[in-house]
Design a protein around this nucleic acid. Structure first.
Lengths: 212, 212
DNA sequence: CTGGATCCTGCCCGATACTG
DNA sequence: CAGTATCGGGCAGGATCCAG
């Protein structure tokens, strides 16, 4: 790990967090503990030696903990690493404001979608419900509480609502349920009233300057 | 700029922010607009071609703006980039919790010290005062308002208080003015009562696990 | 099968020199 | 003042191999 030679919190943080792949690894660990191969397959394109190196740096910085679990190892955020959660979610929201449609070849992963739901949860109080969201090849599930949310990768049995399709980004930005459902860009299974609850519980602004 | 191929806010952010030197450049711009050579000399060790490249990426991402100013160019945060301020300060605080004494060869810069004062400002209301802080070779000035603070690199004429020395980190962590002044690790010019105001206005926790 | 380690290739970083 | 040019070295990327 290269240093900056600066006695400065942000420079020290950059030594740990500012290397390629690190923020993506932490994003996946934000959703839950993961095995080495779960991280590897969940992060398309990451070389296994880089994953090893990054996990080592994060472990030495006490951001990530290794725990032996059955056959093999599980990596999870430490208490100290968990304190990055609001920061990482804020970074994701900041960048998502300029993120409209996917770029060529760009896809969401299950973990990135789950993390996006974490970041998108408003502080609005709603009636609890569960929702399964699908965007492209990625699927994630959110269990919405009155004031919080818990998420997981993949499908869930019997969600109260299923949503998906390329119109999700605009639905999260504008909260216009009628426009979304009539546009043909949204696949929906469940009552329209729950979609209204969904857009109250999840919101990700989209700047006008990047709308196509 | 290499991409991650992920349709994800955090991955998009990592493409811009996750390259070497970028967070340090943004930290300096947080304190105020800078010329190319101010950034270069203010960030020891950064190669000039890398600075050029990073500023180009940040400009294309609309995080930084170039403005012609007299002879040459001035770089400053855009409105969008300015929204990173609370995030960057939170990252710095997060890492500073594990930062006790400087490591071998590690020094603060004027800008890093100024940014640290920004990050350290509590939400406590105090009587306004100005303070000049010196740590090693770095000097910065803070003008403390009732509820906010403005900072600048370098000295200021006639500050109400001057503080400095290797004991500053512990003073900011513990707020123990008597211990700090009697330890010999603090240089102080000004009334002790203002030092008390200082530790109420600025605070940076330090985890017990890293205290030497 | 999990959790890496090893090897090779190529590109980006880093350092220095140089220019409009 | 504000960058570009150039070149060497070291990480990243990708494939493969190995140990428990």
């Amino acid at each position: 790990m290269k240093t900056y030679g600066q006695y400065c919190g942000l420079a020290r943080a950059a030594e740990v967090l500012g290397e390629r792949w690190t923020l993506v690894i932490l994003r996946d660990l934000l959703v839950g503990p993961k095995r080495f191969n779960e991280l590897r397959t969940g992060i398309p394109g990451i070389p296994s030696n880089i994953l090893t190196t990054r996990l080592g740096v994060l472990e030495r910085a006490e951001v990530v903990e290794r725990a032996v679990a059955g056959r093999g190892v599980v990596y999870r955020l430490s208490d100290y690493g968990r304190e990055l959660e609001p920061i990482l979610l804020a970074i994701g929201r900041w960048a998502a404001r300029r993120m409209d449609a996917p770029r060529e070849g760009e896809r969401p992963t299950d973990s990135s979608l789950a993390a996006a739901l974490l970041a998108a949860r408003t502080d609005t109080t709603v009636e609890p419900f569960s929702v399964e969201v699908a965007v492209g090849p990625a699927v994630a599930t959110a269990r919405v509480g009155e004031t919080g949310v818990s998420v997981a990768e993949g499908t869930s049995p019997d969600p109260d609502l299923r949503l998906g399709g390329p119109g999700m980004r605009r639905l999260l930005a504008d909260g216009d349920v009628d426009a979304a459902l009539s546009s043909g860009g949204i696949d929906c299974e469940g009552p329209t009233s729950l979609v209204e609850e969904f857009v109250r519980a999840f919101h990700v602004p989209l700047d006008a300057s990047v709308r196509e």
